[in-house]
Amino acid sequence: MPPVNLPYDDIAEQQADLMRLLFPHLCAPLPDGQFILGVLPPPPPAEAVRVVTGPSPQSPAKNLTMWEIPLRRDLDSEDLLGGDEILGLVRALHTGRQIFSSSRLSTVMGMRLVLVDPAQVTPAPPGDGDATTTILRTLTQPWTEDQPDPRLRGYLRRADLLRLYLDRENDPTVIVAADVRPAGAVTALLAALDSLLTEPGKRPGMKDPHCTRLLDLTSW
């Protein structure tokens, strides 16, 4: 049976949905004490998500790991992994010693990139607070298929820096990254973000395969 070809729009939508499902766990430690520092969209048309983990945003890139997790359950299925399933896999990857063949290891942006085979990883069971988080999130942020425009596809936390990956639903292959400072004028920045994303420019010397353009908005 030939593999099912999913429209990239579906993959982009799922990546954006994962952002909403995973962000409540932003500051919750993983089983080994590390943290989720980023959720990134791989270059199109990859049917995957990249989750960055490490000791802290201040850690050097060489101490961080980028886990690339396929979104499809298998090649013959149209079903995509959800937030709870991705979280369970990430937690399992941070439980005990993990061994990967060299063919599944490389480096991206100075971070170790690991290609994960979900069939080889038993997801960790839900944590004690997961059900509470789901209830409170559902009551305060009722689920809707409508996403903001521009749409958040990913983020990466570094020392005093937050990189946002955004797109527009009518063109999900064009992803604009914007570097912002959480300690800056966040309210004004968010209000102006829509117009700022149309400005040309890419910070020289920076290589990020997860975006089409990279904007420096750290002076706000």
Rank of each mutant, 00 (worst) to 15 (best):
S195Y: 15
W143A: 10
H25K: 14
R112M: 11
P42F: 02
V90P: 03
L214N: 04
R157Y: 14
L161D: 11
Y165F: 13
V49R: 01
D216H: 02
M66G: 01
D130K: 06
E145M: 05
V51N: 02
R153A: 12
R157G: 07
L37K: 04
R97C: 00
A48H: 12
L139S: 11
T173Y: 01
E199C: 08
L161P: 01
S56G: 04
M109L: 02
V114L: 07
G96R: 02
R73A: 08
L139R: 11
P44N: 13
T95D: 04
P204F: 09
P45N: 13
T140D: 10
L136A: 02
K207R: 05
R157Q: 15
L217E: 05
P148W: 11
A124G: 10
D79T: 12
I175Q: 06
L87P: 03
G110C: 10
R112N: 09
A28H: 11
I86V: 11
V114F: 07
I86P: 00
Q34W: 09
A177H: 05
E199Y: 07
Q147L: 15
V52I: 14
L40H: 07
T53W: 01
H25E: 06
A92G: 03
R163F: 15
I11V: 15
A192R: 13
L115V: 03
P172A: 04
L189I: 07
N5G: 04
Q14P: 08
Q15S: 14
K62F: 03
M66T: 03
P60K: 06
L18E: 00
A177T: 03
A16K: 09
Q15P: 11
T132W: 00
L189S: 10
T187M: 14
P172L: 06
D167V: 02
D171I: 04
T198C: 09
L215W: 04
P44Q: 13
M206N: 09
R168C: 06
A124S: 14
L190M: 13
M19P: 01
G33R: 13
R158S: 14
R168Y: 11
A131G: 14
L115S: 10
